[in-house]
Design a protein around this nucleic acid. Sequence first.
DNA 1: TGTGTTAGGAACTAATCGGTTCCGAACTAT
DNA 2: ATAGTTCGGAACCGATTAGTTCCTAACACA
Lengths: 186, 186
Amino acid sequence: MARPREFEMESAMEGAMTIFWRQGFRATNLPELLDAMGLTRGSFYKAFEDKESVYLGALDRYDEIVITQTLEKLQGSDAPTASACLEQIFLPSATSKCGCFICNAMVELGPDNPKVAAKTKAMAARLKSGIVRVLEHHGIGETPQRRDELGDVVLHLYFGHQAVGKSGAADKDWGATLKRILGESD
Amino acid sequence: MARPREFEMESAMEGAMTIFWRQGFRATNLPELLDAMGLTRGSFYKAFEDKESVYLGALDRYDEIVITQTLEKLQGSDAPTASACLEQIFLPSATSKCGCFICNAMVELGPDNPKVAAKTKAMAARLKSGIVRVLEHHGIGETPQRRDELGDVVLHLYFGHQAVGKSGAADKDWGATLKRILGESD
DNA sequence: TGTGTTAGGAACTAATCGGTTCCGAACTAT
DNA sequence: ATAGTTCGGAACCGATTAGTTCCTAACACA
């Protein structure tokens, strides 16, 4: 029964996600964050607690949007092999200079912020389970333990790839490598 | 022909390396940096240009000290297999909460600071060549291309492992996994 | 021993940080 | 229409940021 807010909560959170993803927490100051979210200080502190809580919310949005899309892409893929399917998440087009928000958050705030540490661990686990599901679907790995192990390998390879990509490393072709690691050839 | 400096340049740079390694560039403010280096503002700005140049110097020290030690450990190891040798750099004792300074720097400053990007890429290349040498020594990989590829796998696995470790992930045993990836069994 | 140079440290500076306060305008509900 | 509520925005706040200035004391060299 009062004046309704003028900004869209969802698009504001997506703006926050984008800027925190690209720049990190500390490197993003309030004016930049406000600009990315499309609102002013007043509206910001009316609607949110502080910068950190928005960062945590941005991680949630990343989980809901980017990770979910990634899982759907993996699950819905009609690639003939597991490596061809998983290769998608290693493609330069899917990588950019922003890296992976999960990995970025782990590195920047993991040791100091328990909430970030817990959230990123959960998100990584979700991503891993999606990878393992791909392996199952293509009949890779004899046992659940083996599939879990290969899932860890692909996940950690992915994080390493994203981290290195932030320094603009060469676009390595991971397709053939994944193929060998998963034992699809050779 | 004047008063000599009282502090040890080497120990000061090691202090800088330690704090930047643990906390990153932005999260380390000047008082903390000065404390870690054991000197005051006056001495600091007499001897160094600014915070960034000390950070770059800290990366160099990391290359000279930590990476060199790592390469020596890998080269001087009498482990019976390549996986047993390489497993050393994945051990929890070698991991800590600081992660890998190379990986941390890539993630925090890689996209924004060309000097950091170039330095970290060179350091990563040095580390990778050490890994490849281990593979050669143990006769892993049929061709140089194949060894190079496996070196990339181990390197990226290492970075991913270090990144995840900063959020306090479980201490996965990489020994058995490395063994399988390198084709030493199964 | 005297002179020139520089290290070390305290005090200072301008800019920026995240966060708060306050007020007018806009909207809902009656 | 009007009363009540809350949004959006400008101005403001103390704390903290990296970096500078200046003075004193310590040292090397002649």
